[in-house]
Design a protein around this nucleic acid. Structure first.
Lengths: 249, 249
DNA sequence: GGTCATCATATTGTATGATGACTATCACGC
DNA sequence: GCGTGATAGTCATCATACAATATGATGACC
């Protein structure tokens, strides 16, 4: 830590230029830019080799990568073709972009939209068993607070149980996908914060949780949505303040 | 067409089992099953070769595919490792699953959550230029209706402009991803429906659009959210009825 | 004239060996 | 202890060869 290189900032240098990676990018851009229409045939491996000046290994690995991403399909003895469903590429959030506070907040906004609807649908549809699961998840957070734990996992579990109560698997999967981006960061604050304040903070959050669950119990979608919106909005504010403190520290 | 092969049910044979594909599946299952924890090191290429009895070409292509999917990362001179963000795999909706009406409705629900929030944020944040773009998109739909067109593209464009007005790129990208799943189907109805009813139907939808845009213009997030919710909810109902008719036909 | 077997050719799939580049590790000298 | 250099392990790339498959042309057969 005492090294003087900290302030030198002679980093990124060059991103380790990797031929395969380069080839993948080039081909991908040809496709996504529309130069190669869906169904169109790609150049043969030989042509790509000479065109890009690389060996067949590189070309084949690039093709394998694009095939894995679903961008192209290959047929032995025939050639490689742009996949018909290019437009249906997976939705993904670049983890690298999450370095900045703004990006994290952006993801939280997306999550908010999904979770608000999730709470509303849960209020409409939750089965008795699901209602029970939600109640159990709520109690689990209580117990974790009692044990003076951060209750991160239990918190995530509650949101997940609510998503499951929508009966719509997409909500669960989307939250599984997004949740991981958001939750871990929150642990930073709890761990680094003063322990005395943590308890009060968790109690406040738990109050918001109770409002959500209560609305779901009474089958009031509008109230459930409002409660979830308040919960996530204040959570976003908490995160924003925390991050601001961290930056200046 | 008069051939009797129609009833023979000669299945498309077996999906051409190629070694690379097989290797990818095997490795991927090792990872997603948790046998290989994030950060764990994979066997060396040589070990995988002898373990699976394939050539290095196959191993390397499999590794390239997994790297493209973000499941593993390779470091030259060191080895291949399970990516730290395995849990953060891309969110994707299996197009095959969309055959059933229920699945399409499920996707529409997810979209509703995102778009409702999108409208709310647009009402809060839309810049003058973005407000203008939204107004233009609305007028474009009017003109399309005037021309007796289905206005599918213009409809999609309006939703997109609203998403852009959130200033949050994730909303745009998410809608780009989801939109394609939903919109195309709607065209079926319009095209197959009686033309006389189409006009009235489009006017009704356009009324909903106007309510959304008006709320965004007056910077009323709650009203914008409500209007968008009504629009998409009734859209969902329309689709449900239509699909029910189609099935029995 | 139409159908089918056969062949030539093009292309992707797989195998193998060699070489270069990068990294971690450890012995060595200071 | 700390930097230095040698060394071995590993992935990255290249080159070549052969196998498997698809396509179109050609010709035999009825």
């Amino acid at each position: 830590m005492s090294r003087s290189t900290d302030k030198l900032s002679l980093r990124p240098l060059s991103p380790p230029r990797n031929l395969t990676r380069e080839a993948v990018d080039r081909l991908a851009s040809e496709i996504t830019s529309g130069k190669l229409q869906p169904g169109a045939r790609l150049p043969t491996e030989q042509e790509m080799m000479s065109a890009m000046g690389v060996s067949r290994t590189v070309v084949r690995e690039a093709v394998a990568a694009l095939r894995a991403e679903g961008l192209i399909v290959t047929r032995q003895g025939v050639g490689a073709f742009v996949a018909a469903g290019v437009l249906r590429r997976p939705f993904r959030i670049d983890p690298e972009g999450l370095r900045s506070l703004a990006e994290v907040l952006n993801v939280m906004e997306l999550r908010l939209g999904v979770e608000v609807e999730s709470a509303g649908l849960a209020a409409e549809r939750a089965s008795p068993a699901q209602q029970r699961a939600i109640g159990d998840a709520l109690k689990a957070i209580d117990r974790a607070i009692e044990r003076n734990e951060s209750a991160i996992d239990e918190d995530y579990a509650l949101h997940m149980t609510i998503a499951e109560a929508t009966g719509n698997g997409h909500f669960v999967r989307f939250l599984e996908y997004l949740g991981r981006y958001i939750i871990p960061r929150q642990s930073i604050r709890v761990e680094s914060g003063r322990v005395s304040g943590q308890r009060a903070y968790l109690e406040k959050i738990q109050g918001e949780h109770r409002a959500i669950v209560s609305a779901i119990r009474s089958r009031d979608p509008a109230a459930a949505r409002d409660a979830m919106r308040r919960h996530l909005t204040s959570g976003r504010e908490r995160y924003r303040k925390l991050a601001a403190v961290e930056v200046q520290a």
